[in-house]
Design a protein around this nucleic acid. Structure first.
Lengths: 379, 379
DNA sequence: TGAGAAATTGAATCGCATA
DNA sequence: TTATGCGATTCAATTTCTC
């Protein structure tokens, strides 16, 4: 087929200048309109949230909270915010390949408007994803629930687009052989990962954690894919894309952010092809032996494990096995046996009693993983 | 004051028929419009979101949307859903007390539209809450993330309504003394809690767990409050409200659901009053002027007050003010000034010397409160 | 140099009663 | 209705300070 189509052209088309792995300085809508249509595989967007903050907020120790009061987050009305949102979402849709998908992150201030407009202009929502923050800012006045999460929407370009990329098997393998859920737990971006200016102040008010970007890129792109970020900021998307062997296109208005992003991305060491395979596969999250929970002191030998319905009881042994009626085996095997099944995910089946509530031992494993991730960043 | 107002009325108003603890059969908008304005404390709504139900949707004026056939396109469906949503949210807002709040639960299919319309018609979002399902249904096709959560929006009737009920201290105490987060973990409604028909099939497709309703009612209502549920279904809201000593108003079209709900609620044993008591925080304590400590003889004019680090010294004056360097003001103002802050809690900042030890004057305030309580009990 | 204490900080739509 | 002033309110993690 391809030769036939080429034959129609009198001269071959000039090679398009490669727009990949660059940061375009300017307004996101104008810059996206200058890009070729149907040219990117995934869009990740972290748009302004349109926070509407009244006055200053102080912590109980009277220190002032450094709020996001930047001019780019100020809109006159919901209507103005909607018009802006519609414009950039339309521009992004033109640039997306037919099987492309889009990610947008936001909070309750803006995400409902974003989601409704996505639906209005033809995107088809595949999932909403909750980023649960392990260390969110508290609610200082005690007037609401602690705002401990943000929301991401993942959508395909069209309702009938079935060929979008979703690396189901590698996600499942990375998640101890259970499907990846729609709620993800990550710490906010702090410490060494957080970019600072010369004065040691945060360079960008809303820098996102690389782990979040890595999860969503590993889920929805293949190596070599192109990821467009129209609100590039200090380039988290570009840094993670480069590390994971994906191409990026960044759009950013603020020259200081562009400069910081370029420096940051240049310092990223791309993973070798083979480790990319591994990252995409089973080792995206480390496998945690049950014994690690004992080693970490999160569970004691002799502890009773029960299922959610308290129908079965097992005892934890010091060697990392569990026993029922004198017979000991792994949490998975014992879980399967008491249920008369051939297999069982012991991590979600078994629970421990903590403060009157049963909680799955999977929560303890998550704690271990968080600690490991933090240690890794720190080292 | 009350006699004056009564005097204006020629005759006492006829006793309004009590609409509480009843299930009204009919369309939610029409039934809400028949309720008195500003009469309920909280609305909980679990609206339909399946766009297949579009044929049952009604316009704000109650006319039936002309759903021709399955040839509806997406745009028309969203429009119809939006009109329906706007209609019932407006009707609910009229019925809410000025300090009332509303809860709406939904999934990514509808929650973004609900949230945007809430904002459009004047509600003010307080939190979005994620219900993390501990046992969600798996994704069978392997083409998306496991949809493991639903979203609730909690909103006040108006932006400037500050007097809504939020039992912060109660929630914090129940949560191991850390403030309650915006992500809640509950199992889906199964087992004995799930209502079944004669054939053993689930009676309602989306019955919500009572634990979820209990959490949100305990957070946002007081005993005796009225909770309106315009999509009552099989009456989870009513059952939990009755158990927790709250009143309910249910609206439901389906007679079979109404019958099941009535039976269910009648079987609920309300908790005794004492187990319903809400943990009261310091805000609920009676206010004690500093001068009361002098009147009670617990502190003498001329006494030296210092902060915990003995960096600052103030002198108590007979009128209940304190002075530093000749300038007198309240314990709070002076505490703020010596620290160079805009605010300060003088009760915890200032200390008195007693038996060689510094103790905060807040302890003296506690003594006064105890005496008041005793006197109250004695009299 | 090390251990422990103290300070800092993060997308935040963050009072309420009385006069 | 508006202005005033009391006095209540934070979690996790990192970084800096102190002994």
């Amino acid at each position: 087929m391809a030769p036939l189509r080429s034959a129609r052209l009198k001269t071959p088309p000039p090679p398009a200048p490669d727009f990949r792995d660059r940061i375009l300085t300017g307004h996101c809508v104008a810059q996206m309109e200058a890009l070729p249509a149907k040219s990117v595989d995934v869009v990740f967007a972290d748009p302004p949230y349109n926070l509407q903050l009244a006055g200053d907020l102080h912590r109980p120790d009277q220190s002032r909270v450094d709020a996001v009061d930047d001019a780019w987050d100020q809109f006159e009305s919901f209507q103005a915010y909607d018009a802006f949102t519609r414009a950039w979402l339309l521009a992004a849709r033109r640039v997306l390949k037919p099987n492309g998908t889009i990610w947008v992150i936001g909070s309750y201030h803006n995400i409902f408007r974003v989601g409704a407009i996505l639906q209005d202009i033809g995107y088809w929502i595949l999932n909403d994803i909750v980023w649960r923050k392990s260390n969110p800012m508290p609610n200082f006045r005690g007037r609401r629930f602690q705002n401990a999460h943000e929301t991401l929407i993942w959508a395909s370009r069209d309702q009938d687009a079935k060929g979008y990329t979703f690396n189901y098997d590698s996600l499942k393998a990375a998640n101890d052989d259970v499907q990846m859920r729609s709620d993800w737990l990550f710490p906010i971006c702090t410490g060494g990962e957080r970019l600072k200016d010369d004065g040691g102040q945060k360079l960008h008010p809303t820098q996102k954690p690389e782990a979040l970007l890595a999860r969503l890129l590993l889920a929805s792109t293949k190596p070599g894919d192109v990821v467009l970020d129209p609100f590039f900021g200090t380039g988290t998307t570009g840094a993670v894309a480069r590390r994971l062997g994906r191409h990026f296109v960044g759009i950013e208005r603020d020259a200081a952010y562009v400069e910081a992003a370029e420096k940051r991305i240049a310092a990223v060491e791309p993973l070798a092809g083979e480790s990319l395979e591994i990252v995409a596969g089973k080792r995206a999250e480390p496998r945690i032996p049950f014994a690690t929970l004992l080693e970490a002191g999160l569970i004691e030998p002799g502890t009773q494990l029960t299922d959610a319905g308290r129908r079965h009881v097992a005892h934890v042994r010091a060697d990392g096995t569990v026993s029922v009626a004198g017979e000991a085996a792994s949490i998975h095997r014992v879980g399967a046996r008491v249920q008369g099944l051939s297999a069982c995910n012991g991590w979600t089946f078994w629970h421990v009693e903590a403060e009157g509530e049963l909680k799955p031992i999977d929560e303890l494993r998550r704690l271990v993983r968080e600690r490991m991730a933090l240690r890794h960043v720190g080292g």
